[in-house]
Design a protein around this nucleic acid. Structure first.
Lengths: 163, 163
DNA sequence: GAGGTTAGTCCAAAAATTGGACTTTGTCGA
DNA sequence: TCGACAAAGTCCAATTTTTGGACTAACCTC
């Protein structure tokens, strides 16, 4: 399968991956959530090639994750801002950061600390069911295919957690 | 910056990205959480090249996200299983699927429905603070750098949500 | 008019990905 | 005993992507 075709499937994670899954996009988005908005700042902080950065920002814009907003005239210049759709990615970034904090923090702990504004607790964000409020793990979810994607071999669903 | 060097930083999302951020890894992990364990099954379901699949599985194993487990002898054959560290990625995959469901589901809704086992509700997983139980959005978190990564321009933290 | 700032574009070299054929080890059926 | 089959890869040349650095464009300030 060519990578281009991935985004044509109806699978939610495949379509998301077509936007998010490359070397740099998650890092760019993470910087967005720290308040970064401009090309030069991204480039300096991430150290990535200018070509690829321009391509990624354009792609994020095409997908409606960010939009361009003018911040000066003479000359006209634009910065990138997260859209509502982009802000919806916050849980994704937060859970990835949480995973990294847990498994890759050195002796000194993670370099950035996240605190919950209202209660002050250090956050290691967890998933919760919006209905009953319980926290959710891999075994707490039943995945039910409404229809198998055409041509994709279906999975005989097996326990994910080993005995 | 070469991509290799990204994983050497102490930034949690950078180190996570070094494992997760490429075209296929998130899709592979998603299949793991649906119960897929074997090379041929991944290859058939994802349609990716065998070379890249082998590389990805090896990398996931090197990073301790999956491990090889023998499932037969004569000839010896092994399948891949998520480790505890791999299972910890569940919130990451769940939030990405949730984002895709919200923003890319067609008229018919998402192809796979996720239900909470204990309460039966359809899940659109949300982030919650483990201390106080409140749900968390981008503005509810204070990010505080303990130290700025050496050589990385620091961000003057600006509001992420536009006025 | 020289030098600075910001947001890119352009290019050739290097690295990663692709599709398909091939390998290995051992089954099973005729 | 021979041929076909299965699973989990490896190998290779062609294609695609990424990289680093130089360059451009528009306007400012000194």
């Amino acid at each position: 399968m060519k990578w281009e075709d991935v985004s044509d499937t109806q699978c939610s994670i495949a379509r998301s991956s077509a936007v998010l899954s490359d070397r740099w996009t998650l890092l760019i988005l993470s910087d967005f959530f720290l308040g970064v908005r401009r090309f030069e700042m991204f480039q300096q902080r991430l150290g990535m090639s200018r070509t690829t950065l321009a391509n990624r920002l354009t792609r994020l814009e095409e997908h409606g994750v960010v939009r361009l907003q003018q911040y000066q005239t003479n000359p006209d210049r634009y910065e990138y801002r997260l859209t509502a759709k982009g802000l919806d990615l916050h849980p994704v970034i937060a859970t990835i950061v949480g995973w990294g904090d847990k498994h890759y923090a050195g002796e000194d702990g993670p370099p950035i600390i996240h605190q919950h504004k209202t209660c002050g607790a250090d956050i290691h964000a967890v998933l919760a069911c919006p209905e009953c409020g319980e926290t959710i793990g891999p075994s707490d979810i039943v995945a039910r295919a409404r229809e198998d994607a055409p041509g994709r071999p279906s999975v005989e669903r097996r326990p994910v957690v080993s005995a």
